[in-house]
Protein backbone atom coordinates (compact mmCIF):
# COMPACT_ATOMS: atom_id res chain seq x y z
CA UNK A 1 0.00 0.00 0.00
CA UNK A 2 1.01 3.61 -0.40
CA UNK A 3 0.99 6.62 1.88
CA UNK A 4 2.05 10.20 1.20
CA UNK A 5 4.50 11.87 3.58
CA UNK A 6 5.02 15.59 3.05
CA UNK A 7 3.97 15.19 -0.57
CA UNK A 8 6.22 12.20 -1.30
CA UNK A 9 4.63 8.83 -1.98
CA UNK A 10 5.95 5.90 0.06
CA UNK A 11 5.32 2.17 -0.25
CA UNK A 12 4.50 0.67 3.13
CA UNK A 13 3.49 -2.76 4.39
CA UNK A 14 0.02 -3.41 5.74
CA UNK A 15 0.14 -3.66 9.51
CA UNK A 16 2.97 -1.16 9.90
CA UNK A 17 2.61 1.41 12.65
CA UNK A 18 3.17 4.90 11.29
CA UNK A 19 5.91 5.87 13.74
CA UNK A 20 7.89 2.72 12.88
CA UNK A 21 7.36 3.33 9.16
CA UNK A 22 8.69 6.88 9.52
CA UNK A 23 11.66 5.75 11.59
CA UNK A 24 12.53 2.88 9.26
CA UNK A 25 12.73 5.37 6.40
CA UNK A 26 14.94 7.79 8.28
CA UNK A 27 12.31 10.40 9.22
CA UNK A 28 13.13 10.94 12.86
CA UNK A 29 12.47 14.65 13.39
CA UNK A 30 8.66 14.75 13.24
CA UNK A 31 7.73 18.16 14.63
CA UNK A 32 9.07 21.12 16.58
CA UNK A 33 8.27 21.99 20.16
CA UNK A 34 5.89 24.90 20.74
CA UNK A 35 7.99 27.30 22.79
CA UNK A 36 11.55 26.69 21.66
CA UNK A 37 10.94 25.38 18.17
CA UNK A 38 13.24 22.47 18.98
CA UNK A 39 13.10 19.34 16.82
CA UNK A 40 11.27 16.37 18.31
CA UNK A 41 10.78 12.74 17.36
CA UNK A 42 9.01 9.62 18.59
CA UNK A 43 10.10 8.89 22.14
CA UNK A 44 7.94 6.48 24.14
CA UNK A 45 6.33 4.46 21.31
CA UNK A 46 3.37 3.60 23.55
CA UNK A 47 1.02 6.52 23.12
CA UNK A 48 1.95 8.44 26.25
CA UNK A 49 4.45 11.17 25.38
CA UNK A 50 2.70 12.81 22.38
CA UNK A 51 6.04 13.63 20.72
CA UNK A 52 5.07 11.77 17.55
CA UNK A 53 1.82 13.73 17.08
CA UNK A 54 1.69 14.43 13.34
CA UNK A 55 -1.05 15.44 10.95
CA UNK A 56 -2.78 12.42 9.42
CA UNK A 57 -5.45 13.21 6.84
CA UNK A 58 -5.77 16.69 8.28
CA UNK A 59 -6.12 15.54 11.89
CA UNK A 60 -3.56 15.42 14.70
CA UNK A 61 -2.77 11.82 15.56
CA UNK A 62 -0.14 9.89 17.47
CA UNK A 63 2.01 8.12 14.89
CA UNK A 64 2.93 5.36 17.38
CA UNK A 65 -0.64 4.10 17.69
CA UNK A 66 -1.71 4.80 14.11
CA UNK A 67 -1.77 1.91 11.66
CA UNK A 68 -0.84 2.87 8.09
CA UNK A 69 -3.76 2.87 5.66
CA UNK A 70 -3.68 2.93 1.88
CA UNK A 71 -3.89 6.52 0.66
CA UNK A 72 -3.07 8.03 4.06
CA UNK A 73 -1.73 11.58 3.79
CA UNK A 74 0.82 12.46 6.47
CA UNK A 75 2.16 15.96 7.04
CA UNK A 76 5.11 16.49 9.31
CA UNK A 77 5.60 20.16 8.60
CA UNK A 78 3.59 22.20 11.05
CA UNK A 79 2.08 19.16 12.70
CA UNK A 80 1.32 18.84 16.34
CA UNK A 81 0.89 21.53 18.89
CA UNK A 82 3.36 24.12 17.58
CA UNK A 83 1.56 27.41 17.15
CA UNK A 84 2.83 30.67 15.77
CA UNK A 85 1.86 34.01 17.35
CA UNK A 86 -1.48 35.08 15.94
CA UNK A 87 -2.27 38.26 14.12
CA UNK A 88 -5.39 40.16 15.03
CA UNK A 89 -5.58 39.82 18.77
CA UNK A 90 -3.95 42.74 20.51
CA UNK A 91 -2.39 41.96 23.85
CA UNK A 92 -3.01 44.47 26.54
Amino acid sequence: MRITVDGVEWRVEPGEILSAALLARGRRALRVSPRRGAPRGAFCMMGICQECAVTVDGRIRRACVTMVRDGMVVTLQGAGPAAAPRPGAARS
Binding site: P34, P81, A82, A83, A84, R86
Partner: peptide, 9 residues
Protein backbone atom coordinates in the same frame (compact mmCIF):
# COMPACT_ATOMS: atom_id res chain seq x y z
CA UNK B 1 -7.42 21.60 23.23
CA UNK B 2 -3.74 21.13 22.79
CA UNK B 3 -1.90 23.97 21.07
CA UNK B 4 -2.91 24.29 17.45
CA UNK B 5 -2.10 26.73 14.66
CA UNK B 6 -4.34 29.84 14.68
CA UNK B 7 -7.96 28.99 13.82
CA UNK B 8 -9.84 31.92 15.38
CA UNK B 9 -9.25 35.43 16.73
Amino acid sequence: SERVAPIMR
